[in-house]
């Protein structure tokens, strides 16, 4: 546990020692704000909720989360510091979890800093804050899903650009796996039950119901299981390829 916390603290502090943290948070706040006001018609909808704000989160995460996750392992492998880390008395699972949690908490901080929009909507009207809280939770879980995918892919390469692009594509597939764009491709050569299973993996379907205020245990456990599976894969990849 102590090891996990030490790794987590080191990683998290690392974001704030480089411009990464500030650039990420600025861009995230700027984009989430402008998207909900201009594309989401925040005012014109004349509804006291944050639907216009949360709708764009999957698309923001699609680009911004891989930008954070790409360096998690690729950089360690490139600089050789992975040799240092993995010869300290830490287990692979402590390292994988510590790094993932640091990155996830970091996106959580960025997400938390969007609170002015919550204040705005409360000032303008009388929204259901329970729904908003649920949507924040859903958004945070979804960011974790993206992050777990990105972390695992980052461990497969020592090149951050490759990690970024592969993560983006994989996240995109997960995001849209309930939509014809992805399903038509699988429909051609896979039996229907498998296609249905792929369709049920969609981030968007699970997130949109949370966003609407329906907190279904199935949607929550979907993200939890997704994160666990990708982190488990991450551990396998680190064990197998740390020196390659």
């Amino acid at each position: 546990m102590n090891n996990l916390v030490a790794i987590l603290r080191r990683e998290l502090a690392g974001y704030f020692q480089t411009p990464v943290a500030y650039v990420f948070i600025m861009i995230f706040l700027l984009l989430s704000g402008t998207l909900s006001f201009y594309l989401g018609n925040f005012y014109e909808r004349e509804q006291a909720d944050l639907g216009a704000f949360f709708t764009f989160h999957p698309w923001l995460y699609l680009f911004l989360v891989p930008a954070i996750s790409m360096r998690l392992w690729a950089e360690e492998r490139k600089t050789g510091s992975i040799e240092l880390l993995m010869t300290l008395p830490v287990t692979v699972s402590q390292a994988v979890l510590g790094k993932f949690l640091a990155a996830w908490i970091f996106t959580g901080i960025a997400l938390f800093l969007t609170f002015p929009i919550w204040l705005t909507v409360n000032y303008l009207g009388d929204p259901d804050n329970g729904i908003i809280l649920g949507a924040y939770l859903g958004s945070f879980l979804m960011a974790g899903g993206f992050m777990a995918i990105g972390a695992c892919i980052s461990a497969t390469t020592r090149n951050q650009v490759v990690a970024f692009i592969l993560s983006l594509v994989t996240c995109f597939l997960f995001l849209l796996s309930g939509f014809p764009l992805v399903l038509d491709f699988f429909q051609l050569w896979l039996p229907q039950p498998v296609v249905d299973a792929i369709a049920s993996l969609s981030f968007l379907t699970h997130f949109s119901s949370i966003n609407k205020g329906v907190i279904d245990l199935r949607d929550l456990s979907y993200f939890v299981i997704l994160i666990s599976v990708w982190l488990y894969a991450n551990m396998i990849v680190v064990r197998a390829r740390k020196a390659a």
Binding site: R10, G14, Q17, T79, G80, S81, E83, L84, T87
Partner: peptide, 13 residues
């Protein structure tokens, strides 16, 4: 205690 080849460290720290 181990000093890996090239003495890698976390460069931003």
């Amino acid at each position: 205690g181990y000093l890996p080849e090239g003495a890698p460290a976390y460069s931003e720290m």
